[in-house]
């Protein structure tokens, strides 16, 4: 059953908690996390990994140490030897979200930040760009982010990587099912699935709960 979780990151994580979560990850991931330039990026990545591991432990009733995350050639992660477990993670600003299902799933969250909308011409499908120009200026940024997250969630579900321009919204909606969620003001969140059985709500979680899930399974 498709489920979506969200976790809010706080300014600076306690070092002991950072190290505790880091120790739950495989060596390769630990190295990657230590290579981030900025602490907040390392923290976001760390929490994304914690979310994946805890929810997989719970859904599959397995131990953290039995979860081996591997990546396809385009970098999409999946669980080794458990082909029926699909998940996808996205983070932006303060939020980390994760979608889990037994079918392919893609999720994208973006914090709405001011952008040079001239670049939308390069990124959006022609039909969507023209649609954007028809709407009033104050609403264009929201429209752009909505198109972007819909396209990204679809591309992330497929796991084949990014290319521009994005497929048009009309084309996307003929190929998959989508749902937008309101998690927070100033954020847009799109979820993409090959079926239309979407959850009503996002499940909010936190570090304590996730660590508890992992400890119970171990």
């Amino acid at each position: 059953m498709l489920k979506i979780f969200a976790l809010k990151q706080h300014e600076k994580m306690d070092n002991l908690i950072f190290e505790e979560i880091l120790s739950l990850l495989d060596e390769d991931k630990q190295k990657k996390i230590s290579k981030f330039y900025r602490r907040q990026d390392a923290q976001r990545s760390l929490l994304g990994n914690l979310l994946v591991r805890a929810i997989l432990c719970d859904m599959l009733q397995i131990k953290n140490e039995d979860i081996k995350i591997i990546r396809n050639e385009m970098g999409k992660p999946y669980v080794d030897h458990i082909p029926q477990a699909f998940f996808n993670i996205s983070h932006s600003g303060d939020w980390i979200v994760g979608a889990f299902d037994s079918f392919p799933v893609g999720v994208d969250i973006e914090q709405i930040k001011d952008l040079d909308l001239n670049m939308a011409k390069t990124i959006l499908a022609k039909i969507d760009y023209e649609e954007m120009l028809q709407i009033k200026e104050a609403d264009r940024l929201d429209y752009f982010y909505k198109c972007w997250t819909l396209g990204e969630s679809y591309l992330k579900m497929l796991g084949g990587g990014m290319s521009i321009p994005l497929p048009s919204i009309k084309k996307l909606k003929n190929k998959a099912f989508f749902k937008n969620y309101s998690l927070d003001a100033d954020y847009v969140l799109s979820l993409c699935s090959i079926h239309n059985l979407f959850p009503e709500d996002i499940i909010l979680t936190d570090i304590k709960k996730l660590l508890k899930i992992i400890n119970i399974q171990n």
Binding site: K32, F36, S92, E110, K113, L115, M119, I164
Partner: peptide, 21 residues
């Protein structure tokens, strides 16, 4: 040779678009 995404600079997808622009 610092990776721009996923590690290193840790850019996100919207920032990728900004690089393209």
């Amino acid at each position: 040779n610092t990776p721009l995404f996923g590690e290193g600079l840790g850019l996100d997808s919207v920032e990728a678009l900004d690089v393209v622009a």
